[in-house]
């Protein structure tokens, strides 16, 4: 017979990974699944608390500073942060793609831009936290942004600050460690470690992690700033 018969490949007969990915990438996926549960536990507990109280500060008022510029500009700085993180996700995926094609210089270039994006994001977050703590009086245990009763400002639910700083802090921690790992991998790329190894799988793994961080930010952005 001339025509080739298409046989459906059985991945479960042994001798190969049924997932068709390397051990390292599979474990990165499973780590990300477990990290998803950590973040969702935090966000769900935030939601539960928010559902259980009568008053919650209005995000349009809480986050109304655009760095050092005076005036009321709701959502602008956090939109910029979202844009920065999406950009750095794109540069990261371009680095991974360049890694598939074994183009050492391109990988280094895109990784460098990714690191810059991560640092810019952390800088924005530092500005935002500073404004919240020093100007608005919101900390882990205090919240001055309460409802106005008889013309007097009252205290709001202190859970607002606790959840905000815990969740964005935990996310910022992920960004920070991602930047550090990116720097280490960039050094290895420049040293030619992966060129010698014959593949750039390490870039793929940190790529997965970095996109996950972006994904979490998409949810944090919705839960804290939009809803």
């Amino acid at each position: 017979m001339e025509t080739a018969v298409k046989v459906k490949k059985n991945w479960w007969t042994g001798g190969q990974s049924p997932y068709n990915v390397s051990y390292g990438k599979l474990m990165m996926w499973f780590f990300l699944v477990s990290d998803t549960f950590t973040f969702s536990a935090l966000l769900i507990s935030y939601g539960t608390t928010r559902f259980s109280v009568n008053y919650w500060p209005d995000a349009n008022y809480v986050f109304n500073k655009f760095f050092i510029i005076k005036g009321n500009m709701p959502l602008l700085s956090v939109s910029l942060m979202t844009f920065i993180l999406i950009m750095s996700s794109v540069t990261m995926v371009l680095a991974v793609h360049a890694g598939h094609l074994k183009r050492q210089k391109e990988v280094a270039k895109w990784l460098f831009f990714t690191i810059i994006g991560g640092l810019a994001f952390l800088g924005c977050q530092a500005f935002e936290w500073t404004d919240l703590i020093t100007e608005k009086g919101v900390t882990m245990t205090h919240n001055l942004l309460g409802p106005v009763v008889n013309g007097h400002a009252t205290a709001g639910p202190s859970a607002f600050g606790a959840f905000f700083f815990t969740i964005t802090g935990f996310h910022g921690c992920h960004v920070f460690s991602g930047v550090i790992i990116n720097i280490i991998i960039l050094i290895n790329v420049l040293k030619g470690t992966y060129e010698k190894r014959g593949h750039y799988e390490m870039v793929e793994k940190i790529g997965l992690y970095w996109h996950f961080v972006d994904l979490v930010w998409v949810y944090v952005f919705t839960c804290f700033y939009l809803l």
Binding site: Y19, N20, V21, S89, V93, H211, F212, L215
Partner: peptide, 21 residues
């Protein structure tokens, strides 16, 4: 979230075994 996971994280192009896991 769909676009990030499917395209950036490449999950759409992986085997069904991995996607479901």
């Amino acid at each position: 979230a769909f676009f990030i996971v499917a395209e950036f994280m490449h999950l759409r192009h992986e085997l069904k075994n991995l996607i479901f896991s």
